[in-house]
Every structure is written in structure tokens, then in C-alpha cells.
């Protein structure tokens, strides 16, 4: 059992996501940075879908009521175990009564706290990923108790030394979306060459950019959209849909981000810069 002493900023339980319910309008959800999430589990020899806590900007303060192992991956988020600093990307032994406290991220946006066997929270529509209106809680609540498993584990000294993704990179590899062809040359050039700024409006549902595209495209009949779809709204705003995004939408889909680009974008926050790198499919 883990006790949440303080909540931090926005912290949710996430796994790989919820699949097969998109026909009912259910978003896929799942960890925003699937790459960092995957490493959190790999380092603990967990099943690939074991749930982690996704910690945005600032993680919680947790008290462990049983021994276990944890690992921290993703954004650089300094953490103290009792009064000692802990390192990222390696299994960390936890004793009963230990307190783990996170500070604000110093680089990136989202860190992942993996735990041996994953967190034992409710499964709704085959996933533990918290989503408002679907799971009982839409984030980690203060004073809540999170059950965990007792799993035998012998650390083999696995440590990840080299950074896997350059979180400083601003390039988002993308493909042309179905409505890209509706853009005029000027808009296309702007999208290809401009360095865009992430606006305050960025969350698990989508990331809005500050710089606008001065071309009003017609509304389209609502059609499938998914994480990584880049929409252009009538007021010229580009919205980059993320993991909790709607499964259909009516704004033209001008780009589709690659999977790596979604993971990278998950580490961007307000005022960060990005640039699109449009690739051919084949």
C-alpha cells in the first residue's frame, strides 16, 4: 500500500491505454510519453502494460507501507527518498515507511514512476489509465491509498546511462494529414518553416500552439482523429491531439505526428518551441 501525502501538480495512473472501445467514443489514453513509460517497466522486469504514475511538472509525495522497488524515467524531476537524492533510470529499493518526495521538473514535462508489478487500481474497459468520466478518479488524490503487489525481484543492476530521446530536440517528425491538400502554398510554407510555441493550453487531450495559420479552411464532416492528429481550427490555431484526445473531430486534419513525435511532444510544456518535419510515407 502507498499513501499519497501530497499530490504535486497533475499526476495520473497510466498504462499503455484503452483499445477496442473507440467505437463508443472512448479515447485511447495511456502514457503520454510511451517511450519513458516503457523503460520504467522494463527496468523492473514488469509486464509491458503495468501501470505507472505519470507525473506532470511536479510529482507527489508518497509514503510506502510495504517494501518494493521503484524506478523513475522521463523528464528530469529531482526526487528525495527520505533525505537522500535518488537517481533516475534504475531500480530503487524501497523499505517499509520510506517517504519519496518529488520537486518540480528541471527539464521536460512528464516523469514516470514505475513500481514492481504496477499499481493495483481499478480497471475500466480493460485499462487502468485514469480518464475523467470513465474512472472513479481522474488523478491521484491526496490522502488516497494505492494498493500495490508483492512481487519477488532481484535487481540485476540494470541502469540506463545514455539518454534515449533528446528531450531538447524541437523537431516533430510528421506525415501529411488527409486535409493537408486544402492548404495554400503560403500556409504550407509557414507550417514547414516556422518555429512554433506551445501555448498555455496544453494537456493530456491536446497541445495548442500560439502562432496561427492565416487560412480559414472549411469545416469537414466529423471524421476519425487520434493521438498525433494536428487540427487547424477556423481561427487559425493548430491543435496537436494527444492521448486523451477525442476519437472523431470536425476540424481539418492537416498533419499526423509520428509515434516518436508524440512521445517528444509529451515532454514539451508552455513556451517550449517545436518545429514540424514533414516526412514522406513510403
Amino acid at each position: 500500500m502507498i499513501e499519497v501525502l501530497k499530490t504535486g501538480w497533475h499526476n495520473t495512473i497510466q498504462d499503455l491505454g484503452r483499445f477496442g472501445y473507440q467505437e463508443l467514443g472512448v479515447p485511447s489514453s495511456g502514457a503520454m510519453d510511451l517511450n519513458a513509460f516503457t523503460w520504467a517497466n522494463k527496468l523492473l522486469n514488469n509486464p509491458s502494460n503495468a501501470s505507472c504514475i505519470e507525473m506532470t511538472i511536479k510529482g507527489p509525495t508518497l509514503k510506502f507501507h510495504q517494501p518494493t522497488y521503484i524506478t523513475i524515467t522521463g523528464a528530469t524531476m529531482p526526487a528525495m527518498l527520505n533525505s537522500n537524492t535518488v537517481k533516475m533510470y534504475r531500480p530503487i529499493k524501497i523499505q517499509k515507511g520510506d517517504v519519496l518526495q518529488f520537486s518540480n521538473v528541471t527539464s521536460g514535462c512528464r516523469a514516470y514512476l514505475g513500481i514492481l508489478g504496477g499499481f493495483e487500481t481499478e480497471i475500466i474497459l480493460s485499462s487502468k489509465s485514469q480518464y475523467k468520466g470513465l474512472t472513479l478518479h481522474d488523478q491521484i488524490d491526496k490522502k488516497s491509498l494505492i494498493p500495490i503487489k508483492e512481487v519477488p525481484f532481484i535487481p540485476k543492476g540494470a541502469v540506463l546511462k545514455t539518454p534515449l530521446i533528446d528531450y531538447q530536440s524541437i523537431f516533430l517528425k510528421s506525415y501529411k494529414g488527409p486535409e493537408y491538400k486544402l492548404l495554400n502554398t503560403q500556409s504550407k510554407n509557414r507550417i514547414k518553416t516556422l518555429t512554433f510555441t506551445v501555448s498555455r493550453n496544453n494537456n493530456r487531450m491536446g497541445v495548442h500552439l500560439e502562432e496561427k495559420i492565416n487560412q480559414k479552411l472549411p469545416e469537414i464532416w466529423s471524421c476519425p482523429s487520434l493521438p498525433g492528429t494536428v487540427q487547424l481550427t477556423p481561427d487559425g490555431t493548430l491543435i496537436l491531439l494527444m492521448r486523451d484526445a477525442q476519437v472523431t473531430g470536425g476540424y481539418p486534419r492537416i498533419l499526423q505526428l509520428s509515434d516518436d513525435a508524440i512521445n517528444l511532444l509529451a515532454q514539451k510544456t508552455t513556451k517550449d518551441q517545436i518545429k514540424f518535419e514533414i516526412k514522406a510515407l513510403h
Binding site: 467505437e23 467514443g25 479515447p27 468520466g133 466529423s222 477525442q246 472523431t248
Partner: peptide, 11 residues
């Protein structure tokens, strides 16, 4: 026509 946008949103 379909369900999309949000869980249970009927188009």
C-alpha cells in the same frame, strides 16, 4: 451515425 469525440457522444 457513429459515436465519437467523447465516450457516448452520439453523432
Amino acid at each position: 451515425y457513429f459515436i465519437g469525440f467523447l465516450p457516448g457522444f452520439l453523432y
